[in-house]
Design a protein around this nucleic acid. Structure first.
Lengths: 289, 289
DNA sequence: AAGGAGTTTTTCAATTTTGAAAGATATAAG
DNA sequence: CTTATATCTTTCAAAATTGAAAAACTCCTT
């Protein structure tokens, strides 16, 4: 395999955590010479020294130090794989995934989505990551793009506009610096836009909800969807609608679930909610400018 | 290696995505017979049929379907490993990690943490996951436990109390159902507490911030730290402080960073902020009950 | 200072994995 | 219906990996 072996990364993590080959050997069931060789091969393949080797064990280099943090994340992501085989019994849930910004919007109107007497529970999965509906990570997802693969279906919910916002009490926009998404994780045009201007950036965040909170508390100007900014009387627009930033929101579902009663109900309610708020989503309900 | 090979999981993902052995072979550089064998071995090791095999390719079984979603998450988690070697140049950041609930508290008081003229930028990493400070995932973390490993240092910030909250406008607490953390991911006592009572649960969420938002919009009663609930005039306590739920917050840092000027500054500011809000954090500043 | 424990590295034979080639099968096109 | 194409499975020899054993080294205890 031309790519770096995931198994080697896993061994790397064990060596790093135990501080040597013997410890990693105990954990993995492989022999110390095998592990030593694979770490050497990993270093050669990557062209990076990951360890400072000594008779008493392996210490991480600076690069190794940085790498181990990222491999831990991988390791954490592998845990659900193991859990899968202990498949727990299912409780009737409808899992709805949305980004943190959209979740703010939905939570405020939650009463329309989940009602007393419903024969299911709604589970909000609030994340900036895109979870896989085709493979049942969640049941429904609110996405910026329609379904693309054959076993997914989607329904367009709305057009979304963006504008810069500031706290109403924050003073003159010209004096304010900006709140931005961390460029290392900025994935959408709206997340990247600030970095493409020459605005001074004061603070970074890793989610739309955090940007909203920072702006709300006077942290500066932040770009966010109008449905967030225009819903909060404590915020004011700090400039016009941003023409380049137009998104759509689509409700994506597994095609097999469209007519499943509980999911159907949530779908219909979402459609109604979005319909009633069409102008807010489109940036036509500015409270303050 | 006694555990399931990560490389096999990766191949599994390739087979699933391409629909067969040839596609996976093209992507991986391995031969079709090799991949076929490894998938067979994976199935045998796990005791699960992951594929429906045919002359025209491999289709996923239901179990395979469920598994592929989780392997995708692993795959996504592996991306930063690759990025690491293209180490971008560093901009002076101080990365502060906090859970979504704590991030709400900090964002509201952001002006105390980051000030004009600072020679660094603050990067909020808002997550419910515990990021690794020893290995430089973040610079500072607000944790419920003090530092335990030798190369970390910590400083206690506060004692934290919890109470149930409802929206002030939501009506009689006795009639309300509860908003809870999804038990599948509930890690702390505060997240599990609701499930240990006999309260009817109306909706699940995956973060403290989402619980807060849901409660705020009348979704029901939710347990949250007092520093969140008592900071919002729109919320009221729905019962007394919960005696069983007491947490501490500690500021954890890499021992080498304690005296690094930018980090030092953030540390001192956090300490001051927490000191000034000691009573709020301890549940002694109830707005409404 | 000597001995013991623990760790890493090297050597070599055994075991495992791999891919080339051949065979089998399904599907599409003529 | 026949032929061509694409894909998967099986066989076998070559290549790669592995672990046992021995050697080398460091650190700690007596």
């Amino acid at each position: 395999m031309k790519d770096i072996s995931w198994d080697d990364l896993r061994l790397f993590l064990l060596v790093a955590e135990t501080g040597g080959l013997s410890g990693a050997a105990r954990e993995s069931g492989l022999s110390p010479p095998t592990i030593g060789r694979r770490m050497l091969a990993l270093e050669q393949q990557t062209g990076q020294a990951l360890f400072a080797r000594s008779q008493t064990g392996y210490a991480l280099t600076k690069t190794g130090d940085a790498l181990v943090g990222k491999v831990r994340v991988m390791h954490a992501a592998a845990q659900p794989v193991h859990s899968l085989l202990d498949a727990a019994k299912e409780t009737p849930l409808v899992r709805l995934s949305a980004g943190t910004g959209t979740a703010l919007f939905l939570a405020d109107r939650f009463q329309q989505l989940s009602q007393p007497g419903d024969p299911f529970r709604l589970s909000f999965v609030t994340t900036e990551a895109v979870l896989d509906i085709a493979h049942r990570e969640v049941d429904l997802g609110i996405r910026s793009r329609p379904a693309q693969s054959g076993n997914l279906a989607s329904r367009k919910l709305a057009n979304i506009r963006f504008a810069p916002y500031r706290s109403w009490s924050a003073g003159e926009p010209e004096r304010l610096e900006w709140v931005a998404m961390d460029p290392a994780i900025a994935r959408y045009p709206a997340a990247r836009w600030v970095h493409e201007q020459s605005h001074p950036i004061r603070v970074l965040a890793n989610s739309v909800a955090t940007i909203y909170q920072l702006v709300r508390s006077g942290g500066g100007i932040g770009v966010m969807p109008c449905f967030i900014g225009d819903s909060d009387p404590g915020l004011a627009r700090a400039g016009p609608l941003i023409e380049e930033l137009r998104e759509e929101q689509h409700l994506v579902m597994h095609a097999d679930d469209r007519h499943q009663p509980n999911t159907r109900r949530v779908i219909d309610r979402l459609a109604t909610l979005y319909d009633e708020n069409r102008d807010l989503l489109a940036g036509e309900r500015a409270l303050r400018g």
